[in-house]
Design a protein around this nucleic acid. Structure first.
Lengths: 296, 296
DNA sequence: GGACATTACGTGTTACGTAAAAATG
DNA sequence: CATTTTTACGTAACACGTAATGTCC
């Protein structure tokens, strides 16, 4: 069960094709086929159904392990390598849209740039998984993820990284202004909304899966799925009545471009938390400075 | 950064010797040396100091990743392999001493054996790490670990396994009967005990490290370390005045063999929890039956 | 029949063992 | 000086590429 066998297995499963995986991994199709065969014969289980290519039950089980294992191997390499390579005079920051909207990160970043005008800054806004990935791999010096959790609970992370909360917000349900709920400004409990129509927007808002786990129910059937990463679009979708969505309380004005929306406070004991995540930070690096500014 | 390079690196670090690692891994010393060299040249860092052999700082960092990675690879193999191999008609149980003492597991086990007289049962009592390891690797069908946590928190596990609580106990401080503390039967807070002399007995009782993390202080300097796994011996040590130790409230009579001890309730909001951990259980296996009996 | 995966086979690399050298305490 | 690690070198295994064969829409 060599690491690179796992890597090609995961790639084949992700792309649903041996040939596509071969292209991505710079192998020939034959090599990919042989590697998967080797893994299967090692474990004595069929991992992939062919034509169409997809994981078997055993394959699914293996994927659940293999993906975090590979991520952690990258994290290990990054962690160890950092000890040799000199601290770069740049700051690479990965964050989710809501981390950008509800944490003071971008404000602090402006302050940092005022203090260090020549600092090379790279900001990347993506989904939660990619942020964690980038922070683990060391592609980003710092990551800012967000999530919906019970107060005082940490965000669950697939890899162990230093994590510290930098912002907490109340949770609100976004509904069109003419929606019946809009007339209960006192707030609603999540349990009351299990049967409503939801927009599932895993890259922006807390995913419905997350919501189910947090609320402990199995309700929240999605009526609509939005795979983009843009918050404004999500607000537009909510305004058009495609369904409800859950967002942290946004700073004044953020919702202005999409009028006709109401944000109803959620009374369930739940907070939206933004956490700063990172591997080992070299002392005196811009990343360490910025982390200190955020947690101060 | 191949998996087996990590494995030999970890082994060398653990044994503090290239030659010893070679014996354990069935390689020649030369092969081990080459593998470590390969890993070091891949990562471009020295991982081990030689003579005496021990991890460098980078090596320590790598160990923190490599050990869980290897454990998880074993877990992955066990998880996948279980899907093929027929469910064994045996029950292998790994548990910690305190899990045995404070959970109804052994009672339930007797009931199970009454119902299935021909069932092959193997019970292994060891430290927490070994229990988790055995459950992850599939060497044990079921594991029972214990730990000290805030009420409602799950026990932290280095690998993701199904975990469900099966018993909770109050936490007590064990002191000699003539100790000043023995006169405060109303209970003491942990913070008041940060400066006392402690026995560190990581294989039996909650380790002092764990205690520090849970209490958030950095007190609890050990005066004495007990590396054994036997609870009675620990009680004897406490009776002899070697230091304080923390134990869950033990069922009546358990402390009788070591008279002269008092168990003072701890008033800090903390519980001792026993959790049942396991990988995927084949339906209708003895393990699944027993798990159901424990969680019912 | 065409796209895609598997099998067969030849080759170059690599990873190990043996054996000799170097280093360290 | 003895023990332990490193280096040198020969060999055998293996993993990949090329190319032919097989298989499923």
């Amino acid at each position: 069960m060599d690491a690179h066998l796992l890597r090609t297995f995961v790639t084949v499963a992700r792309l649903g094709s041996f040939s596509a995986a071969a292209v991505e991994l710079q192998y020939t199709q034959a090599a990919v086929s042989q590697q998967v065969a080797a893994l299967e014969s090692d474990l004595k289980v069929t991992l992939l159904r062919r034509r169409p290519v997809g994981p078997t039950e055993a394959g699914t089980r293996l994927l659940e392990h293999a993906i975090p294992i590979l991520l952690r191997m990258d994290a290990a390499r990054a962690d160890v390598t950092r000890m040799t390579s000199p601290p770069a005079a740049r700051l690479a920051l990965a964050l989710t849209p809501l981390a950008a909207a509800t944490s003071p990160a971008l404000t602090r970043l402006a302050e940092l740039r005022a203090r260090m005008p020549r600092l090379d800054v790279a900001v990347r806004v993506t989904g939660r998984d990619q942020v964690v990935e980038a922070a683990a791999r060391g592609e980003a010096d710092l990551g800012l993820t967000d999530g919906l959790v019970a107060p005082s609970d940490p965000l669950p992370l697939p890899v162990p990284l230093s994590a510290v909360g930098v912002a907490e917000s109340l949770v609100t349900v976004i509904v069109p202004a003419d929606h019946p709920l809009a007339r209960s400004p006192a707030g609603v409990g999540l349990a009351d909304l299990a049967d409503a129509r939801w927009i599932d927007a895993p890259r922006v808002a807390p995913s419905l899966d997350e919501l189910r786990r947090t609320a402990g129910t199995d309700g929240y059937r999605p009526g609509f799925r939005y795979d983009g990463a843009d918050t404004l679009t999500l607000l537009r979708l909510a305004a058009e009545g495609h369904g409800l969505t859950l967002l942290p309380e946004l700073p004044g004005g953020a919702m202005a471009p999409s009028p006709g929306l109401a944000a109803i406070p959620v009374t369930t004991r739940l907070v939206h938390r933004v956490e700063l995540i990172h591997g080992t930070l070299p002392a005196d690096s811009p990343a360490a400075t910025f982390a200190a500014m955020l947690t101060a």
